[in-house]
């Protein structure tokens, strides 16, 4: 286990390093001089030179990378071009807002899809089963932002359960904040619920055909016992990987959902920064997200190994 952990940690570190080089180099090589952007095209060459010096742009690329990375590790991703403020201050509670949204949709996803998937598998071939197969396939094909619009239309305009665009800050009203996040979270979760239910159903049905199930039955176990003590244990393993993939995808997907529901998370800020070419902010957000994705993947690998000790034994 320790060796496996070490190997995975090393591989995660290498990936993070590769990502950071890719991000840094691509943004460093973009045409356009940040000093000119800051001072305007009318600035004198001396002033520009001074600005470049003070922004640390004169050093060779590897030196700049090391400087940037060292600062980053200490938790200081630099100064925003557009706001002249530390990126950390700017990002502060935006990550909190987004993470609350993502966490909420993930909890919804797990809470809805697992019982539904099991119920679905139990009734294989029934009308319920076939109806849900069709419904699920359609739900899966709804893009998150259209789902957001449908949710707004149904819950906001027809049923009047929430006010579209009426975001409340968590500082003034924590309960209202969570209530407002519920509908965007639902929009992110629904298409993924359909995918997870489908996968879980398929896995349970696949497992149910194996020999150990017949053995368990012949030893006098009831269907419930076989399902919950034997089949689900095995069926969950692929579902787990899928759920973790979804967690990372949701973080990216929230960029769009935040736009639909007017939530001031990192997503909107990322968009504004991309359009305004505020690269330190873009780099910081991208690196934060990549680190999150790599962390989730690492945890999944470890969990996987705990559930199925055969994993990773060979190498």
């Amino acid at each position: 286990m320790v060796r496996y952990l070490g190997k995975k940690l090393l591989s995660a570190a290498v990936t993070l390093f590769a990502v950071s080089v890719l991000v840094f180099v691509s943004f460093a090589l973009i045409p356009g001089d940040p000093a000119v952007r800051k001072l305007g095209t009318q600035a004198t060459p001396q002033a520009l030179e001074q600005m470049r010096e003070s922004m640390g742009l004169t050093a060779p690329l590897p030196v700049r990378y090391v400087r940037w990375a060292a600062q980053f590790i200490q938790g200081d991703p630099g100064i925003s071009y557009s706001y002249d403020m530390p990126v950390r201050t700017l990002l502060g509670d935006k990550f909190f807002v987004t993470m609350s949204l993502v966490l909420m949709s993930f909890l919804l996803l797990v809470a809805i899809s697992i019982p539904l998937g099991i119920a679905h598998a139990k009734r294989e071939g029934h009308l319920f089963d076939r109806l849900f197969l069709v419904l699920g396939q359609i739900t899966m094909s709804i893009p998150p932002f259209f789902m957001g619009i449908l949710v707004t239309l149904l819950f906001g305009i027809v049923l009047k359960l929430f006010v579209p665009g009426g975001y409340v800050s968590w500082k003034t009203d924590p309960a209202g904040f969570l209530l407002y996040l519920f509908f965007p979270a639902l929009s992110i979760a629904l298409p993924r619920v359909a995918m997870t239910v489908k996968l879980l159903r398929a896995e349970v049905l696949k497992e149910a055909e194996k020999d150990y199930v017949r053995t368990a039955y012949s030893r006098g176990n009831s269907t419930m016992m076989v399902l919950y003590r034997h089949v689900l244990k095995n069926a969950f393993i692929p579902v787990l990987t899928f759920l973790s993939m979804n967690l990372t995808d949701m973080v990216a997907g929230s960029v769009i959902i935040e736009q639909v529901f007017g939530i001031p998370g990192y997503g909107r800020f990322l968009l504004v920064s991309i359009l305004g070419r505020d690269y330190p902010v873009v780099e910081a957000i991208i690196m934060g997200l990549a680190a999150f994705v790599i962390l989730v993947n690492l945890l999944t690998d470890l969990l996987y190994r705990l559930l199925d000790p055969r994993v990773g034994e060979a190498g």
Partner: peptide
């Protein structure tokens, strides 16, 4: 390794970065 690094990004995010480039 490079592909893995790119894979660490969901594709919509990767596209966002490229559009910004």
């Amino acid at each position: 390794r490079i592909i893995d690094a790119l894979f660490a990004f969901p594709s919509i995010l990767l596209a966002l970065v490229f559009v910004s480039l």
